[in-house]
């Protein structure tokens, strides 16, 4: 805005504040609710301030298996982390290799391969869930980490992103590397990967969140509580038909479920910015 108008400033700041409140209020409610006893939550109005049970609630869900779950929050978080990490790392590794092959190697049907990968964008897990389940079952992948990760690991988006980035890498860089005696593997490791650091960081954030938030696939492929993930469990502990829902546990687990994604964003965002400021390309 070029000219100052105090009234407009007040208005815009007011709107911004309203949005901040709208975003923060649910988190705040979860935070305060997680510090009360179940009785306190069911008698009287929803509390907007802390109760006295904070620490014990959190320790409780982390250490002891919860009702109807047979797993503690620590277990849930571990499972989710393994799955999200596996999906993020796997997606990045596979799409880097796929994009590398498509951009830097001349082979028959190269273009066709690219478009085949690209149209898998139209086949998310929800569309192919029956056949994928059948394949996973035949391969004995039910109730295993591999079963949770493997079917979600191919990513057309990431392949496309890396392809677009690789296309911008000047050809002379590849030629200089060839003259310097770097074979395909060394070129990838020594030159391409360091140059795609920022892309990898950005994708990792997105893919980790994608993996963390998976609901339908883990619900289907795991029946053993040992492999239960956080997002699936939240639905289960808050869906009781004939007894009181332990809201304090639900809220504590919800808050815990938010922590790893937030941590990933906070840590990698720094990377991100550094990569942007350095501007190595």
């Amino acid at each position: 805005m070029r000219y100052r108008r105090p009234a407009l400033d007040w208005l815009s700041h007011g709107l911004l504040l309203l949005c901040v409140v709208a975003f923060c209020l649910p988190v705040w409610m979860a935070l305060t609710a997680s510090t009360h006893t179940q009785t306190a939550l069911y008698t009287g109005t929803a509390p907007l301030w802390f109760g006295g049970e904070g620490l014990s609630n959190f320790i409780g869900v982390l250490t002891a298996p919860m009702d109807r779950l047979g797993a503690s929050a620590a277990r849930l978080l571990w499972n989710s982390t393994v799955m999200a990490l596996g999906i993020a790392v796997g997606k990045i590794a596979i799409s880097i290799l796929a994009a590398y092959a498509i951009v830097f190697f001349r082979f028959p049907l190269r273009r066709t391969c690219f478009w085949l990968i690209f149209i898998t964008l139209m086949l998310p897990i929800e569309v192919r869930i029956m056949p994928t389940y059948k394949v996973a079952a035949d391969l004995n992948l039910l109730n295993s980490y591999i079963g949770l990760i493997l079917p979600l690991i191919a990513s057309a988006t990431a392949t496309f992103l890396f392809r677009q980035f690789y296309l911008t890498v000047p050809n002379e860089l590849l030629e200089a590397a060839r003259v310097d005696g770097a074979g395909p593997w060394r070129f990838l490791r020594d030159i391409l990967l360091p140059l795609s650091k920022t892309n990898i960081a950005a994708l990792f954030v997105i893919m980790f969140l994608y993996g963390w938030n998976q609901y339908l696939w883990p619900l289907l492929i795991t029946t053993d509580d040992h492999y239960l993930t956080t997002v699936v469990s939240l639905k289960r502990i808050s869906a009781a038909s004939d007894e009181l829902i332990p809201w304090q546990e639900v809220m504590a687990t919800t808050l815990l479920a938010m922590l790893p994604p937030v941590a990933v964003i906070v840590v990698l965002q720094r990377f991100f910015v550094k990569g942007l400021v350095d501007s190595e390309k």
Partner: peptide, 20 residues
């Protein structure tokens, strides 16, 4: 292969490795 010919090349746009 280029590396096996024992030649060195200076490119027009230098082609230095930006991250090294």
């Amino acid at each position: 292969e280029p590396a096996a010919r024992d030649i060195a090349m200076v490119f027009q746009n230098y082609a230095l490795y930006p991250h090294m």
